[in-house]
Design a protein around this nucleic acid. Sequence first.
DNA 1: TTTGTTTGTCTAGTGAATAAACAAAGCGTA
DNA 2: TACGCTTTGTTTATTCACTAGACAAACAAA
Lengths: 397, 397
Amino acid sequence: MRKITGNQHLIKKINKSLVLDMIKKQGPLSRADVAQRSGLNKGTVSSLVKELIDEEFVYEIGQGESSGGRRPVLLLFNEKAGYSIGIDLGVHYILGVLTDLQGNIIKEKSITFNDKTYETVISLVKDTIQYLLNEMPDSRYGLIGIGIGVPGIVDKAGNILFAPNLSWKNIPLKNEIENIFHVPVIIDNEANAGAYGEKRLGAGQEFDNIIYVSAGIGIGVGLILKGELYRGLNGFSGESGHMIIQVDGKPCSCGSKGCWELYASEQALLQGAKQLHTLPLKQEELTLEKLLELATKPHKEVIQLFNQVGSYLGIGINNLINTFNPQQIIIGNRLSMAKNWLEKPIKQVIEAYTLPFHQTNLRIDFSKLSIYSTALGVSFFVIENFLKREEGAALFL
Amino acid sequence: MRKITGNQHLIKKINKSLVLDMIKKQGPLSRADVAQRSGLNKGTVSSLVKELIDEEFVYEIGQGESSGGRRPVLLLFNEKAGYSIGIDLGVHYILGVLTDLQGNIIKEKSITFNDKTYETVISLVKDTIQYLLNEMPDSRYGLIGIGIGVPGIVDKAGNILFAPNLSWKNIPLKNEIENIFHVPVIIDNEANAGAYGEKRLGAGQEFDNIIYVSAGIGIGVGLILKGELYRGLNGFSGESGHMIIQVDGKPCSCGSKGCWELYASEQALLQGAKQLHTLPLKQEELTLEKLLELATKPHKEVIQLFNQVGSYLGIGINNLINTFNPQQIIIGNRLSMAKNWLEKPIKQVIEAYTLPFHQTNLRIDFSKLSIYSTALGVSFFVIENFLKREEGAALFL
DNA sequence: TTTGTTTGTCTAGTGAATAAACAAAGCGTA
DNA sequence: TACGCTTTGTTTATTCACTAGACAAACAAA
């Protein structure tokens, strides 16, 4: 049993990481700015900045305006010191992004697939990574890692335990990718990644208690609590799609009945559409995209369908709000494309049902990163992991 | 904007608190034991222990057995260095405990009341505190604080915003008690307190991700995530009793419909009992205690009633498990008295409905502290708060 | 008795932070 | 233009907490 003990090295890590974080998020700043804002001594800041410059995480961009004295030397985070790759592995598509250390997309590549066998898909993933790798500019640290978001249950060792919509089981994905590319690989659930993406780069940057609702074929949830992703005991948190909202309701493939995602997902929408006989579509043409087209026409019954799905989304979100008292709900993944028809019913349900105290200071937003939430999220996992290792932990944010 | 910076003071605080914690939980230990287990240098431990002895948090109990060399001096946590008072303010009762710093109950007092007006009840609370205060032994630090758990929504400033079952609104309880007794006062929701009590002193000591289900007149939930109590943005988390498990179900006094607690609480049980016309009880005699008596006879229909409530409890717990992936569920508050009839249906529902991955390494337990969960929980809040401050905190601004 | 081990203290040294002095570079005004 | 005042960033001396290692005391076993 080893406990964490305090020593000077820990202090330095904390402070160095604080300084870097400040330059990263609030830059350009002078050394004096950093000292003043952090409360650290000027000398301390100087010495920490010197190290950061040596490591090429920070550089000087020249002098700023004087306010009556010597002109400051402005410092900027060197977002081009290394690059990260994030892969959103969906049920029908792969979206890969190459990002710099600030999370800016340098290059992206997306493909769709129909053959879901593991061999086929994983080969496409490798191709995508290789393609992005070829496009990567030279830099001090090169490729710092690869992140992959998957639609399924992932354990903390990076194995996909179960991905129902891909029909995959027990896949040691992290090992496989690490063995090929020889960089750290992070595998996480698509909803967790999306939540983190929105928190760090998207709609949730100002908030610390966020529930990200990934409404796609099913529903997954990513929880940002106290500013950090909450993963649960084994990393399986967020399977709220299988929350029962209707006792003895529709049977679900998970073995339960009345699960939320049976009423509020893309699948629920398409099921509902099948029952409509007034649609100018063949059964095999039924897609979310087509329904969105119809809704814009506008097609009354389709809009009503969206509204109904929105109401059910609101029911589950109500449950989550009463339990978590979050500051923000972010709705992401494919259904967020239907914002125009979902937003109102969701908000109506919450206004009517959710406890009044839990509604104060609460925001309901839609994804800001749209299709990039997950890919950027995993990419940012990799970046933070890298900076932590290089710098020492970002203990306090 | 002030950030937390690292300095030597922080190191010392971390290490000192580590040493104290170790002696507290694993004592009696020698200085050498502490050094070896913590990884700290022997000299460092010696100097920290010297301070702790000066502050009377630790004392030497004499020599232990030698294992072939000089005999060790054994150290023990001085749990009598101060005392804390915890009050469980229920809907019909007040339970007060005086505890030492280890959470042992030195004295307790409970009363019941029917007049729920604030003035009456608060006067009883004050009497209870005063009674316990009179019983308190002399000690270095005396009364270190008072904690009060209440059945309602409490904000982070210690105001009771809303306690439906007491018909209270906007009560600045913390201020009022502090002004009388002049010690730090902590007010929290009854479920949060119960969760913390079980985590630190009861059934949850070994686990870090726990959901405590306080099943009383209504249902509240206390969340222990990553070993810490999660309170949400404003401190309102855990109102899962108002999770909708039946869309368009029974109307709830909160304005919503189909809330969990309408089907799975003490109130639900009594409602159900009212419908039974075969009971040898008058309407006004209907209480949980009477029903428990009947169940032991055994009375078939009453047992069935308990089973039904258990099943519904299982439904909501299923929802929480799928969302949180906890390691342990603890069922507490009054309904835990019905363990014999509730445990089986709860476990059956979970086995049948909850995702299999979420069931591995999951425990379903009942409260170990029984009626003391909440009172001990708030008392322990006070203790931890005190120890944090005494050991040179001032970390957070 | 002797030898080796364990405990706990003491001393010297290290690393990181702070305070304060200082040099460099600018502005403003007489 | 000259001088004083500000602001920036570096340097130096000091403080503080921890570590390593020496050491004395206390003990078991041979």
